[in-house]
Amino acid sequence: MTSSFLRAPRHHKRTSLDLDVIIDGVLNRVEARISDLSEGGARIDGASLPARSRCEIHYGGQTVYAVVMWSEIDRMGVRFPYELSHGPLYRALQRARSAAMIEPVRIFHSQRSAGFGRRGLS
């Protein structure tokens, strides 16, 4: 008999960003980088703690508590027991979301030829 594991949908939208943080585990303190963040959790690169362990994330004078949900050699996913709703980490998330909403600049579209390829062959 096989069991199917259905994953519940995420409650918060994940946002890619690049933040240097300090992770405090039970026995160590390590510098790492948050590369994916939401109000409910984060993906942290450059640090790895055992799954189900607790840690603290220090950023901008704020301490955020987290539980490690999964862990690989050089990265891990953490869940926040209390959703981010204020503080420097939350403001960084809001800035990253605002930057992602801006449409990329369209350069050189007015200078493109109507032909085929770079040389405008017909």
Rank of each mutant, 00 (worst) to 15 (best):
L84C: 05
S98E: 15
L19C: 00
S48N: 04
M69Q: 14
A42M: 05
E103H: 13
L49R: 04
L93F: 02
A99L: 14
S110C: 07
S71C: 14
F116C: 15
G41P: 00
V21Q: 01
S38E: 00
L93Y: 01
H109R: 13
R97T: 08
R91V: 06
D24T: 07
Y90N: 04
V105P: 04
D24C: 11
E83G: 08
R95G: 07
T2D: 10
L19E: 00
M101R: 15
T2S: 09
F116T: 12
M101L: 14
A92F: 00
L19T: 00
R97E: 12
I57G: 02
C55F: 01
R119H: 15
R75K: 11
H58F: 06
R52Q: 14
R14Q: 03
L84H: 05
A8P: 06
A8G: 09
G46W: 01
V26P: 08
L19F: 00
E56S: 13
S110T: 13
S38I: 00
R7G: 08
K13E: 09
A47V: 05
V21G: 02
R33E: 01
S16M: 09
S48V: 06
R119C: 08
V105I: 14
Q94N: 09
S53K: 03
I34G: 01
G46H: 00
S71A: 15
R91T: 10
N28Y: 02
F116M: 13
V68N: 06
R112W: 11
G115H: 10
R97W: 02
E39Y: 06
R10A: 01
E83L: 10
S98H: 13
G77C: 05
L6D: 15
G87Y: 02
S122W: 08
G60K: 02
M1N: 07
A51N: 07
A66K: 08
R106Y: 09
P9H: 01
S53I: 02
S35C: 14
C55H: 01
G87R: 02
V78P: 05
G120F: 09
S48I: 08
M76R: 04
H11C: 11
C55T: 04
S4N: 12
F80C: 09
P81D: 13
Y82H: 15
L89A: 05
P88C: 06
P88G: 08
R7D: 11
S3F: 10
D74H: 09
E31I: 03
S122N: 12
N28P: 02
Y59F: 03
I107L: 13
L17C: 05
Y59C: 04
A32R: 00
V78Q: 06
S85P: 07
V78H: 04
N28K: 07
F5A: 05
H109T: 09
E103Y: 11
A92N: 00
F80W: 05
S4F: 13
E56F: 07
Y65M: 14
G61P: 02
W70C: 10
Y90G: 04
R14G: 00
